[in-house]
């Protein structure tokens, strides 16, 4: 379980990649990860390609992030979800609030 963040060299995309398990154990790390997104209104990508597990606390963390960042970002996308993870997001109607790719 780990979290890594990257600001793209053109400062336009801020990517947070979560490996393994996405749940409340990451609550602090996740919050501090998006504290420093740069000043250029980047797009935030939550890359879940390596995320195997996620529960409702992760959903809460995502919603909190959205509330927190608000207009500081151009958009927030959740990308590369595995099918079972995507299903959880769809059931929770997250497709109405995030770009899910």
């Amino acid at each position: 379980m780990s979290l890594s963040k990257t600001l793209s060299p053109d400062n336009k995309t801020f990517t947070i990649q979560i490996q393994g398990k996405f749940d409340f154990n990451l609550v602090q790390e996740f919050r501090s990860a998006y504290a420093d997104i740069g000043a250029e209104n980047p797009k935030v990508v939550i890359d879940l390609r390596d995320t195997e597990y996620m529960d409702s606390s992760a959903l809460g963390m995502l919603l909190n992030m959205q509330k927190n960042l608000g207009s500081k970002v151009s958009s927030i996308a959740i990308s590369n979800c595995r099918p079972q993870i995507k299903k959880i997001l769809q059931i929770s109607r997250f497709d109405k609030k995030f770009e899910i790719d």
Partner: peptide, 29 residues
């Protein structure tokens, strides 16, 4: 997570892994 690692070792369970995790994690928490 440990129980789910055991369960997904059973044939055919892999594709239910994340969903079972979510169910059990919600109940457990």
């Amino acid at each position: 997570a440990n129980i789910l690692d055991m369960v997904s070792a059973f044939e055919g369970m892999e594709k239910h892994r994340s969903t079972l995790f979510l169910l059990l994690a919600e109940m457990y928490n």
